[in-house]
């Protein structure tokens, strides 16, 4: 049974397409981070993919720039209830980092400079559904938004799109990351409103 709030009309923003339940559109780009923004120099940035057997594959900034990049326009949805339509990014599909990786694992933990972690099923990172992104709206990605390099997984709540990305580790079991250990949902589908565990 709905509880109506006397005197509240709301803005009824004109969304040109539906939003996930409980979300509202924002024009600016809010910042949610659990701690200070780490200073990560692109010159010393590295990304390591480590399999469940310990095999490591590594890329540096020049290696990243040499990979085929895509320009993508996606909607993003933060668990704190803002959504942003038509954000433009440039990055490399995550598939490209797994071309030479032999794994039977189904789960990934993304690791950030600064210590942040988040877990994502491997399938959610493949088939062109996720990117290793380094430009936002035509400019190098700002540190406050995860620069120099962040993960971009727009079909899940945005805490899954780890800022300051430094590693992807493969696991046979789903290992909860930072927010997932602090009350947030293991998977985080905005359309099913999987906010909290």
């Amino acid at each position: 049974m709905a509880v109506f709030t006397r005197g509240f009309g709301g803005h009824h923003p004109e969304a040109d397409r539906p939003l996930p339940p409980g979300q509202h559109l924002t024009a600016d780009f809010p910042v949610l981070s659990a701690g200070p923004t780490p200073n990560v120099d692109a010159a010393r940035w590295e990304l390591t993919v480590r399999t469940e057997s310990g095999a490591e594959h590594r890329w540096d900034w020049a290696g990243l720039q040499a990979m085929p990049a895509e320009d993508v326009t996606v909607d993003i949805h933060c668990v704190t209830r803002w959504s942003k339509h038509d954000t433009r990014w440039r990055g490399v599909p995550v598939d490209a980092f797994f071309e030479d990786v032999e794994t039977a694992a189904d789960f990934v933990v993304a690791h950030s400079y600064g210590g942040y972690t988040t877990n994502v099923p491997l399938d959610d990172l493949l088939d062109g559904r996720a990117w290793v992104a380094y430009e936002y709206e035509g400019d190098p990605l700002e540190p406050v938004h995860g620069g120099p390099v962040r993960l971009l997984v727009p079909h899940l709540y945005f805490w899954k799109s780890a800022k300051w990305l430094r590693g992807l580790t493969l696991h046979e079991h789903d290992e909860p990351g930072f927010w997932e250990q602090n009350g947030y949902h293991l998977y985080g589908d905005p359309w099913s409103e999987q906010r909290y565990s």
Partner: peptide, 9 residues
């Protein structure tokens, strides 16, 4: 250091 932010950039 733990942070909580509001508003955008």
């Amino acid at each position: 250091i733990r942070t909580e932010r509001f508003g955008g950039t």
